[in-house]
């Protein structure tokens, strides 16, 4: 079993700026390393089912939410949240098992790539329909409140495209009506697949929607890890302390295609050359060096450590069995006595 060697680096004092910044940066590094490996495996035709969806450029905002949550919280990440998943407690091998179709993965080959989670640990597996996880998180929070639990938070993530769905509206309104300790992170990465924001919404800013739902709004620069940690840390803390639901809008540019099948040739060069087009990894690394928190050599050693962990996990997963269609239990019900004998013969 390969585990994440840096998982235990979560700082004991989360207020220590250096610790939290460096820890989060290392989750970002690990996530970027996993993504680059997945992209390589995709190009080599080693991904069953064929789909690979990366979080390139979104690591800072994603990881910042992950490190802001804690055990007992509920987290429903989305397609570009590899970094947040790791920071929340997913292991590298868990991610790779799902992407590579190992029967030992949490989804056992029944679902793949970004559709993975451990519901028992508050880590909910997304479905593909955008906005649908909001109300699921709401329901989990309502159950926790009903049981008398305290100081818990639920969070989920969307791109700006996901805010156009009916499920988004219903879920946000429900969270507002119930005044839940809920954080909605919307990463406005300028394109929903190929559709630019001008074809996605007409409001001046996505933050303006917060008041309509009874949320408090936060804006963050998604390319800037320090700003992500500040904004998401603040939103999560306010939700945890009874401040009601929080809407966080992060702005950045998606630095990859929708999936690895997509060359993203439609992305406007002006955006690439704007501050939105900065790579959050580069920005964060510059900050680490500028603050003297680590030098280039040390960062390189972190990168090497991440790389060796990912390589070891891939080697292990590639030796693991795929699901066996002949021993698979082809049944969608727990109540086996209610299986339809005609359909399940």
């Amino acid at each position: 079993m390969v585990t994440s060697p840096i998982f235990d680096l979560r700082p004991s004092d989360p207020t220590a700026e250096r610790d939290i910044f460096v820890t989060t940066f290392r989750w970002m590094l690990l996530a970027r390393t996993v993504d680059e490996k997945l992209a390589g495996l995709y190009r080599a035709g080693k991904i069953p089912g064929g789909g690979v969806y990366l979080g390139k450029g979104q690591e800072a905002v994603s990881a910042s939410l992950g490190v802001s949550l804690q055990q007992g919280d509920v987290y429903a990440p989305l397609i570009r949240d590899g970094a947040g998943r790791l920071a929340f407690g997913e292991t590298v091998i868990e991610a790779l098992r799902t992407c590579l179709g190992s029967v030992l993965g949490p989804m056992r080959g029944r679902d793949g790539n970004v559709h993975r989670g451990r519901p028992k640990d508050g880590y909910l597996p997304m479905i593909s329909h955008l906005g649908a996880m909001i109300s699921v998180v709401n329901g989990a929070l309502m159950a926790k409140r009903r049981r008398g639990e305290q100081h818990f938070v639920g969070a989920t993530c969307l791109g700006e495209g996901g805010t156009s769905t009916g499920a988004f509206h219903e879920g946000m309104n429900q969270a507002g009506v119930e005044r839940l300790p809920f954080v909605m992170l919307v990463t406005d990465n300028q394109y929903a697949y190929s559709t630019p924001t001008s074809r996605q919404f007409a409001c001046k800013s996505l933050e303006s929607r917060a008041a309509a739902y009874g949320f408090q709004a936060h804006s963050i620069d998604g390319t800037n890890l320090a700003d992500c940690l500040r904004g998401l840390g603040s939103a999560v803390t306010q939700a945890r302390n009874g401040g009601g639901p929080q809407l966080v809008i992060a702005r950045l540019l998606r630095l990859c295609g929708h999936g690895e099948h997509d060359d993203a040739s439609y992305v406007d060069d002006r955006l690439k050359n704007s501050p939105l087009g900065r790579d959050c990894m580069v920005v964060a690394e510059q900050r680490v060096i500028a603050e003297g928190w680590a030098d280039k050599q040390e960062i390189q050693s972190w990168r090497a450590q991440a790389s060796s962990e990912v390589e070891a996990a891939v080697v292990q997963v590639q030796t693991e069995a795929s699901p066996d269609p002949y021993t698979e239990r082809w049944s969608a019900l727990k109540s086996t006595h209610l299986l339809d004998g005609f359909l399940n013969a």
Binding site: L124, A132, S135, V136, N138, G139, L141, R147, A167
Partner: peptide
């Protein structure tokens, strides 16, 4: 008291929240 309550007119969110509550061990 507190166990039979009104939902907004949001069938999607009603069912979604029931799934979340079921994950947490409730039987909505």
């Amino acid at each position: 008291p507190g166990r039979v309550f009104d939902a907004p007119i949001s069938e999607d969110a009603m069912v979604g929240s029931a799934v979340g509550a079921a994950i947490e061990g409730m039987r909505p």
